[in-house]
Design a binder for these strands. Sequence first.
DNA 1: ATCAGGCATGTTATAACATATCAACCCCGA
DNA 2: TCGGGGTTGATATGTTATAACATGCCTGAT
Lengths: 160, 160
Amino acid sequence: MSPRGFSCHDHATCMSDMLERAETRCRDKGLNLTPVRRRTLEILLDEHRALGAYDLLAQLAAEGLGSQPPVAYRALDFLVNAGLAHKIEALNAYVACTHSGADHAPAFLICRGCRAVAEASTAPASGRLGDAARAAGFQIERTVVEAQGLCPDCQQDPAA
Amino acid sequence: MSPRGFSCHDHATCMSDMLERAETRCRDKGLNLTPVRRRTLEILLDEHRALGAYDLLAQLAAEGLGSQPPVAYRALDFLVNAGLAHKIEALNAYVACTHSGADHAPAFLICRGCRAVAEASTAPASGRLGDAARAAGFQIERTVVEAQGLCPDCQQDPAA
DNA sequence: ATCAGGCATGTTATAACATATCAACCCCGA
DNA sequence: TCGGGGTTGATATGTTATAACATGCCTGAT
């Protein structure tokens, strides 16, 4: 499970690490990590928290990489399909994937204070939801598992 | 876990049952189940699947119960806060609660074919996500657990 | 060499989801 | 009767997401 996201870390190394993995992954899978897509991923990695599509778009626009909504949504779709980013349904926002390995069923701890997101893995079909699905004859294709609350830092915060 | 929603049942009885429970619950808690709120719940119960706020609004409007978005959102907020309905985050849509008991941490099986929704319960802090949260010092306040896929009926369907 | 096809991007417009704000009303208790 | 809380009415706007169509660019087949 080892979540990531609420702990201090060498951010520069973390980012370059993840980017490199993303490039390898795309090369291996025949995917085209174009400048807009790469830059979108960089922004997500850099923030290390959930960003709305329009937040991203503003950044991209400021850098001359496109200013209309489809630009952001296309880049995000690509990243999500490539497994390099995830959508946080409870926030309508997006985060970079921090488990750069193979396909996985992600689960998230989402801080309502700072929108920081820690990613963990779930066993999709195991557990009680899987039992319920099997009992009902329901075929699971995708799972959304998100816990909202306060991260250690924000628990200290007066604003909390 | 016993999911509900993909099985045949006596719908009329189911509805009147749930409505009665909702009324009892509101009376006990000093909540005011007004006509708009009650009708909104009825529509959700009747459909037995995820409805968008604007779908609901259209129904309400057709019945002369208000035609502007706030009408629907207020009613839905009330029902969600009262525990009589849930929001399906992955669809930005709403369903009637089928576990009319006390507060619970719901989990959903959502059919992408017909938008039918079965509700189950999760143990919020148990399981692997709870482990990860404790390990990270994260304080969970709310969980979103949603599985998307195909219900038994839609698995047969040619359109699937 | 050229042209068809795929893929990425540019551009405009609009759909779909959600909330802020203020006014009016109604009921109940002081 | 006055005032306050809660509900509704109404207008406007904010936020998130996609449809639809045009353009450019590379590449491989002929």
